[in-house]
Every structure is written in C-alpha cells, then in structure tokens.
Design a binder for these strands. Structure first.
Lengths: 335, 335
DNA sequence: AACAATAATGGAATCGTTATCAGATAGGAG
DNA sequence: CTCCTATCTGATAACGATTCCATTATTGTT
C-alpha cells in the first residue's frame, strides 16, 4: 500500500500537488501532471478512503439496513442500490437486523461512525429504538419499504393499503364472498395496511371478512403451511373460495398444502400472492400477484439521497400493479 | 458527532485516558473511568471508525464481491456472512460485478483503499484481472463458490465435479440412458466441473451423452425456456428421458416449459435441479436437487479469514448432498 | 521518613488526505 | 529592466483515534 507521500517522493514533488492532480483541484503544469500520473501508475497507488473520509467527513459510503437479505425483494433492493452506488463511486455497507431493535441500533451507530453519506433503512417496526436518532439526521435517511408510524423521515414504499384494496376488489369481482388471508407480521405496518385495504374493499361491497380466516404469518413458507392447516380445521373452511397470501412465497406454500389437502387451485379455491416474483409465474398454476416495482423504488431512494428534498419529510408511495394469473381465473358463481 | 476530544474536555481529562477507558488498555483509576463513561453517555459518543481505522490500518471491515445479489444462493451468502460480521463487530461492504472484470477490479481497489481486513470474492471467471493483486494479499482473500483456475488463493466451494457425478449416477440408476443437461455459463469453472462430472458418471457406465442435448444456460429462467425449446426441435428429443438443469431456477423453468409442451414430469420425463432451494420442494412435482450447504460454506469462509491458515493456499471443497424428490421418482425401463 | 516500585495521567507523534495560505516562478506590459 | 499579475508549487494544519514516552501521584517497604 503506497501513500500519497510515496507518490510525491517518486515524482519529486510535494503532496499538495499530487493531491491537486488527483482531485483536479487547482492548476498544475502539464509536465508535472505527467510525472505524477506516471508515479501513480508505477506505485499502483490508490487514495486511502479512510484518510480522505476522515478529512472530508464523508466516507463515500451508503449504509443499507434490511430485515434480512435472503428474501427475494431485499435481494432486489441490494442489487439495484449497489449498482447505483457503483455508478457514483460510493461504497455500500450492509447489515440485517432480523427485526431486533438492538441489532438495528448497533448497525446504525456503526454506520454513522463510518461517516456514511446516506442511510437507507427498512426498520424493525414501530418498536425501533432509532426514533430521535433518525430525526437528527433527516436529510441523510430514507426509510425503504417499511414505514415507522408517525415518523418524520423521508420514505419510499409501496402503497400497501391500495395493494390490499386492489386484491380485495379483484377477488370480489371474481365472485368471491368468503375469503381468507395469510398476512405478514402485524407489528409491521405494511402488513396492517395490506389487510386493512383488503378488508375495506370487501366492506365497500357490504361483505365482512371472517376473522377466523385471517392468519398472521411471517412471510416464510412454514407459516403458510400452518395457516392452511388451521383454516382447514375450521368448520367454515368449505365455504372459503379464495385465499390471499401477502407474499408469493407464502402463496406457493399455500398452494402446496392445498394440493395435499385435495383442494385444486383455481377450480376449488382461488389463490393469490404478492410481490410479483418469479415464483408467481413459474408455479403451476401461475399465481395472481401484486407486482412491486422494486427497482424503481430503489432508484427513487437513491435519487432522494443524492438530491435531498428541501421540505422534509417526503413520503413517496408507489402504485401496486395487479397481475392476473391462472390461480384466480375461474369465475365463482354468486348465489 | 462528538469526538474523543469533546469527551476528554467534558470529563476534564486527557484524550489518552479516554482512549484507555474505551479500549480497556492500561490502568485507569475507577473514579476517572466513571467520569469518562458518564461523559460518553452524555455526548452519545461513538468512536470514529475512519480515524481508528486509519491509525490501525484496519477498517474493521470485510469486503464481499459477488456476481449479483438477487440470486438465492448469493442472498444466503450475504445473510450468513453479514451475521457473522455483526457478531465480531465487523462491517460488511458489498459489491456485485455482473461478470465484468472491470467492475470487479474497481470494487477490489475501492475495498482495499478502505483498509478491509478480509475479502471474500466470487470472481468473474478465469478472465478476472485480479490475478497478481490477489496473490499479493493471500491471507486476506478467500474465493467463495467460484474458483479461478490455477489460482493460489484460499478457496471455499462445493465439489462441483462430484455434484455432477452424483446426479449422473442417480439418473443412470433410475434407468436413464438418454439425458439432457442445461448448464451454467461455461466460462465459469463450476459449470464446467458439473457437466464434466455428469458426463463421467455416464461414461463410467459406458454411456455417451449426446452433445446436442447439452445447452449452455446462464442460471436464469429464460435460458431454460430456450434450452427446452431447442431440445424439443431436435429429432432425438423423444428418446430423452431425463433433464438436469444446473440450478433450481432453470429446473423450474424447464418444468414449466415441458408442461406446456405436453410432457409430464416425472411420467414422460425426469427432471432435476441443483442448489436445494425452496423452489425445489415447493414446486409440483417437487424437484430432485443437489443441496449446497451455503451457510456452512459461508461460515467456513469467515473462520478462514479470522484464522488465516499457515500454509496457503487452502482449498476447501464441501460435499454436495443429493435430495431425491418426486421429479425423478419413476423408474425407467431399460430396453 | 525516605525511597523504590507501581499506578495513573498527559503530551506529542502518527496514520493519509486535503484545504488554506504563503511563496516562487513565469510571462507580459510599461 | 522593473513591476504586476497569473500560474504554479510547497509547508502546514487540521480530521479523530491510538500509542509510545515521560511525568506525576500513590502505594508499600524498611
């Protein structure tokens, strides 16, 4: 590892001038610039980002805090954000909090002590301990995907209420009056918003959803197995004609379990998911889902970080897109 | 952002002593320790990692360079590595090179200029430009998942030849003599190793694989569609009784396409995938696959970084695990 | 009570970079 | 030939933490 001093010595010139050449700040005689560039090449010199970051109070670094990274949607966020960071010569430091407020706080502190230039965070839930710390660094923080109720942070997320409403309307229009739902964890506001919208869509048509058929899942396969298991043991199950799982993974899990129980999708029962992942169209039957524009959300997030809005907070909600597939294609007869 | 100087001033004491309290290096009178801790709490002080990293020539940072991050396997690596990093109070900086040697090099340089303590990389391919740079930092680098032919780096990967051989043997034992394969990109050695093992398994039984039925995919769904399309147009297709796709995503894609062509799995044709992802058991029929112990691989990688082996290079190969599912359960009659 | 040994603390240099300021060189005008 | 302005360059002081080294305070020993 050679330093700027090494370069200066080799070029027979001062550090200041070398720095000027690198940053293109201030005038440098062409001939000395040449010498410097040659020395840089010879020594395979790269400026130390810790030193410059310390001086400039900017680590040329974006922090990304997610619940986990194995989930498809988060992988997509990582991908898009990482690509944009690369484009702007920014590093990307990542941490996952597994819904633990303590881990979330540790990550936050660690990131800040690295002089990050921006923080993108999909927070734990309303139980997050970051409240006031987030407030102190408003321009630098964007909440992505998940919201914190009543927070004054900038945020980029899907209109989850609308997503629920769209799905409710869709199922209603297909003739379904007795529906079930496998939700995400209720401590996360997006899960609450989704089911609220779903309920409202039916309510607007005068239909009440039976709360016995609302199951709180955790976005993982196993919880969808449990949900179907529980539903199937309820006497009212035979009248249920549609199930909405709040992500595609749980929808596919539900499909598997329903098939095992001898229920055929979409003939006996309709099924829908959410996210618009490959899973939805790769499964047989293909599953009706709600597409989330993950890439656009990530792009918007980065653009907000790079051009901080004057009047915080900015709350951006993306529109969900309903994708109809085979799993809800059958029209149910309305008695 | 308060600095150690602020803490020192507030505590009415020198920076040196504050530093000693924080790092627990050297003796400090209990009463002064108290004062310091109180000041730290009052100021909400966090040591600046750029400053300490600059001094210590250690950024408390691990670099992770992957081809992409949306793929399931890479998501798993990120997750496990990130968790271990957290455990040891190390940051994790991530970049994806999209199989571009130039991006890969840029990431490498950027990471190094942040004084990373270790680098985990799944390199571009043999076309990687990192050759000598990797050699210069042997103890610090682990190749994960992908190898560079003839490199002298430590590496942790699956025994991909064995995986291919296992799958070949399995299909042979089920009576298959005319098989097809959808491979990964051939510039990546693991794809070559897999198909080589697969070929050899059949060869050892005196069966030659028809090269018309080896298709170079790219691990994405679309390429599996194309593969099946191409296979189906070949006159010999009707005699093919089994297809191995070198990952689960392509296997599920192949399943979808085969179903469309009126071929039933596993009755008309057997199908297998690789990776052991949720996809394999969630699809209908469930798909025979080869399990990769992603978490263990990631754990081993981190443990190698933390306890660098004396005699480099260390090449660790994990054993693949065959998981038999419905998609290959039918025994084909041997004429 | 005097001294040695140890505990506790502060000062200063260092890591590599950049920005400010002052000094040097060159070129042109008078 | 002098003076003045550009153009160019170098020394220095930060950024925040750590680690020697030196100094002072506190014990214990005889």
């Amino acid at each position: 590892m050679s330093s700027i001093t090494d370069v200066a010595k080799l070029a027979g010139i001062s550090k200041s001038t070398v720095s000027r050449v690198i940053a293109n700040s201030g005038p440098v005689k062409p001939s000395t610039r040449e010498k410097v560039l040659k020395a840089i090449k010879m020594l395979d010199y790269n400026p130390n980002l810790l030193a410059s970051g310390l001086r400039a109070k900017s680590g040329r670094l974006i922090g990304l805090i997610l619940p986990e990274s194995v989930h498809f949607d988060f992988g997509f966020f990582i991908q898009t954000i990482s690509d944009i960071c690369m484009q702007y010569n920014l590093g990307l430091i990542i941490g996952t909090h597994h819904n633990s407020p303590e881990l979330e706080s540790r990550l936050f502190d660690d990131f800040y002590s690295r002089n990050i230039d921006g923080l993108i965070i999909s927070p734990v839930s309303d139980a997050s301990l970051l409240g006031k710390r987030l407030k102190d660094s408003l321009g630098k923080v964007i909440l992505l995907d998940r919201e914190i109720t009543n927070s004054s942070c900038n945020s980029v997320s899907l209109d989850n209420y609308k997503a629920g409403y769209m799905m409710g309307s869709h199922l209603y229009s297909k003739g379904h009056r007795n529906v079930a739902c496998i939700t995400g964890p209720q401590h996360i506001s997006l899960s609450r918003d989704r089911i609220a919208g779903f309920r409202q869509a039916f309510l607007d048509k005068g239909v009440m959803i039976d709360e016995n058929f609302v199951y709180e899942g955790n976005f993982d396969v196993d919880s969808s197995f449990e949900a179907i298991q529980k539903f199937s043991q309820h006497p009212g199950f035979s009248s249920i004609t549609a199930i909405w799982a709040q992500n595609d993974v749980m929808a596919v899990g539900a499909l598997k379990k329903l098939t095992k129980l001898g229920k055929s999708v979409p003939d006996d029962i309709a099924l829908a998911g959410m996210d618009g992942t490959d899973l939805s169209y790769l499964s047989t039957p293909s599953i009706t889902t709600i597409l989330q524009p993950f890439s656009q959300m990530a792009e918007k997030t980065m653009s907000l970080l790079r051009n901080p809005p004057a009047d915080v907070p900015v709350k951006i909600k993306f529109d969900p897109i309903l994708v109809e597939n085979e799993s809800t294609e059958k029209e149910f007869i309305i008695k």
